[in-house]
Amino acid sequence: MNQIIKIKTNEQGEVSVSARELYQALEVKKRFSAWFDANSKQLIENEDFTGVPGGTPVNGGNGNIQYLQDYSLTVDAAKQIAMMSGTDKGREIRLYFIEVEKQWNSPELMLSRSLQYANSKLINYESQIAELTPKAELNDVFIETGEAIGVREAAKEINVKQNEFIDNLLNNKYLYRSAGSRGRLQPYKKYVPKFFVLKSGSVNGVEFTPQVLITPYGRQFFYKKFYAPDQMEMSV
């Protein structure tokens, strides 16, 4: 069967026809807008037809591409318009649509479409799993490490810039600086020891300000909160 008008199919298996292609196939003499206004009076917008955003690309006479107003029609709406034309061409196009529907609804094609839809869903699921796998593996690292580490090491483990990580901790009030913008990082008390621990020490007998270390639980929490919010399940 020769293809008179292209039948388009979306991911949900719904078929449609370009109103402008139908207009050209019917060999209508009047302007497209006037023709469609007259023929769409018996149709329901968003049920029998929808507008095509941006229009349909058409090659102009000088080789440039023009985007012309168009509508997407259901096959039933296209059959109705063809029949309303009352011309031999209209009857030919209507019979063409009827034959297309017969083939479309054959058991073989219905099975083929079902398999294609199932395959597309499977590919989508596989891509989602592949995207989430690195995140899941990184969460395992936090647990396996089993010890608190410094902010620099934590940023490296999460694979983000240290300054960016620190800014997130400061802006979200998990840490503060002890003496202005250049002071040492210190945790708010309510997050110790759940997210942070303080490591004290001394050099040559002189004690220094306790170093802030982030616990495995804290690193997992901050990773999810700042960089994988779709995995966020924990609460403070």
Rank of each mutant, 00 (worst) to 15 (best):
N172W: 02
K225C: 01
A148W: 00
N124C: 06
F222D: 00
V212H: 01
F49P: 02
G86W: 08
I129P: 14
I93D: 00
Y217W: 05
L73V: 02
Y117V: 15
L169K: 02
K173E: 05
E11C: 05
L109Q: 03
Q103L: 15
G55N: 08
S106A: 11
Q80A: 14
N159C: 15
P229T: 04
L68E: 04
K156L: 06
E147F: 04
V15F: 02
E47H: 08
D167N: 12
R20I: 11
A154F: 07
A148H: 01
A19W: 00
A136V: 07
K225W: 01
F222A: 02
T56V: 12
E131F: 08
T145F: 02
G86R: 15
E157A: 15
R113Q: 05
R91P: 00
V203W: 13
Q66V: 06
T74P: 11
K225F: 01
R182K: 13
N62F: 06
L185R: 00
R31K: 13
G13N: 00
N124S: 12
G55L: 09
L169Y: 07
G54K: 07
S72N: 04
Y217M: 08
N105C: 12
Y188I: 11
M110A: 15
Q231C: 03
F226M: 08
E137V: 10
G201I: 10
